[in-house]
């Protein structure tokens, strides 16, 4: 295992004893996890363990209530912040089921978002459009997606590709990918994984939430965590993911 030496200025997401509930039912029961720039973490776990809840809670989805603990990014307290404040702090969530927003064009949406996230940068419209076109191509989508409504009429796989496109364009520091591999065929998965690898750098930390380890064949995680019943019950390396592939989760339950 290659430990990366992290300088103080690098991104760092610290999740401490995070508890959250939805409709008064506690789902997260004290999650501890730190993701730093240059690190790739995989979060695995059986259905209903609270994996997607963690993604949504990190992003500040209003349907979830944080009942305890904290979320910090680069020392900035995000626990009770709005989704936009979290995004502006550098957090990005690729949603498991991205919703469609009829009438809102992908290009103008990204343009507006970019200005909020990087107000100091002045990218000319034509250059910005060119960037999007370039990455559309890289994830295997046609240029016409630029002027289509966000996710409107997109297939499941197209939505996932567009999530990755958004990640690359918006340049977040900490990326949470929730089941990014679901709905993608082998070829599409390869394109998406290539984009993720291209985007990966010492400045960006990844938390890859996945049920199966399919995506992990294309992207090597350094750390693997197992979430069960709202808590991280085991931490390990890539070998842990491989063991789960062979043996499932039952052996962890019994430990």
């Amino acid at each position: 295992m290659h430990r990366v030496v992290v300088s103080e200025s690098m991104s760092e997401l610290i999740i401490k004893d995070l508890r959250a509930s939805v409709a008064d039912k506690e789902i997260l029961k004290g999650v501890n996890l730190t993701v730093k720039g240059g690190e790739i973490h995989a979060l695995m776990g059986p259905n209903g363990a609270g994996k997607s809840t963690l993604g949504n809670v990190l992003m500040g989805h209003p349907n979830y209530t944080i009942t305890g603990g904290s979320i910090k990014l680069d020392g900035k307290e995000l626990t009770n912040r709005t989704p936009e404040e979290r995004a502006r702090a550098g957090l990005f969530l690729a949603f498991q089921n991205p919703v469609s927003v009829t009438g809102v064009k992908l290009s103008s949406f990204l343009r507006t978002a970019y200005k909020q996230l990087h107000p100091e940068e002045k990218v000319p419209l034509s250059e910005f459009q060119a960037r999007i076109k370039d990455h559309l191509k890289k994830v295997g989508l046609d240029e016409e997606f630029l002027s289509r409504s966000v996710n409107d009429g997109f297939s499941g796989g197209e939505r996932k590709r567009v999530e990755i496109l958004q990640m690359v364009i918006l340049k977040p520091k900490i990326v949470v990918l929730d089941e990014i591999d679901s709905g993608l065929d082998v070829d599409a998965l390869k394109l998406v994984a290539d984009e993720i690898r291209d985007y990966y750098s010492q400045e960006v930390g990844f938390l890859i939430i996945t049920h199966y380890q399919r995506i992990l064949k294309n992207i090597d995680p350094e750390f693997v965590h197992i979430l069960m019943n709202g808590k991280i019950t085991m931490n390990g390396e890539k070998s842990l993911a491989l063991k789960i592939e062979d043996e499932g989760y039952d052996w962890i339950r019994s430990e």
Partner: peptide, 26 residues
């Protein structure tokens, strides 16, 4: 859901809703 999605990319609530409204009129 729509508002949260747009906000998760950095848009304020006001910006997100006016984008949705303008989209509706598109």
């Amino acid at each position: 859901e729509e508002l949260t999605y747009l906000r998760s990319r950095g848009l304020s609530e006001e910006e997100a809703s006016s984008m949705i409204v303008l989209g509706f009129m598109d």
